[in-house]
Amino acid sequence: MSNDFTARNIPDRLTSRDQRALKSWETLLVIIAVMVFVINALSSPYFLNPWNLSDATFNFTEKAMIAFAMAMLIVSGEIDLSVASIVALASTAMGFMMQAGFDTPTLVLTGLTVGVLCGAFNGVLVTRLGLPSIVVTIGTMSLFRGISYIVLGDTAYNGYPSSFAFFGQGYVWWVISFELVLFVIFALIYAVILHKTNFGRAVYAIGNNPIGAKFSGIRVERVKFILFLLTGLMSGIAAVCLTSRLGSTRPSIAFGWELEIVTMVVLGGVNILGGSGTIPGVVLAALIMGMVTFGFGLLNVPGIVMSIFIGLLLIAVIALPRLWTMANAARAGRKA
């Protein structure tokens, strides 16, 4: 063995952080976000109004909070399609408690507890019984919302106490809503968990190679279970905000959110097959989707047309880099 360690010393990094940041997915998202912002500002005089911008944040804050936890779950190689149904069930439970005369703190606690329990149910099915999460959560997606339908049918819960309204309608300072503050806080918390802790590292290891992670002493099932719990908890929190904002609960509440949330996560650069992705990416994707929705709204473009744009964006942002790589490879092949 060589004693000449210094000669073979391997550098920690070849490229600096700045260099890598320039080439990253997040940079692309920042450019898109700026473009969307400029286009919006140019096409509608109402866009730059602070109150309008503040209103626009409600388009994404609740979904984004779930998306942070979903991002970690997808990085670990699993998925939860039942999130919107958890929102519905948690909201229904809160409505039920409200009718029974409980106060606001209890309602909030109910929402969060139902969220965590639903997450635990998914987590047990996936980690204990070893079932594929995509199928399990398609099942619980029907089950959770189904329970809401059984409870509510075609009726609705109305008349939440006025103190409950703060979570979805309250403002902390000037145009800064409580939800927006919550969004920022959770963005920071999840960014720290995923990028700065041992737990986050384990999530990446599991997503890249679950067997290898297990062979490296990581308690894979436990980590995944916690991720399902977190996703349930975030859905519960989103349920509190959304119910408070709408002031009512119908079983169709948050219908179709799961697909929007997954789109947000994937657009944010999280690999749907697991192993890579960042929270800042998801934050940017949330901002882009929120601004696009808002901008189109100002132009009186119907929501359904916006969804075409989001769908195209989802496919394009994934396809274009791949097509680019393929074209480069083909060119290199011709030269050789």
Partner: peptide, 14 residues
């Protein structure tokens, strides 16, 4: 009630 349908099919899937 037909509102049971969703929950039943969800359980059936699981």
């Amino acid at each position: 009630s037909p509102f049971w349908q969703l929950a039943i099919s969800g359980s059936a899937i699981i």
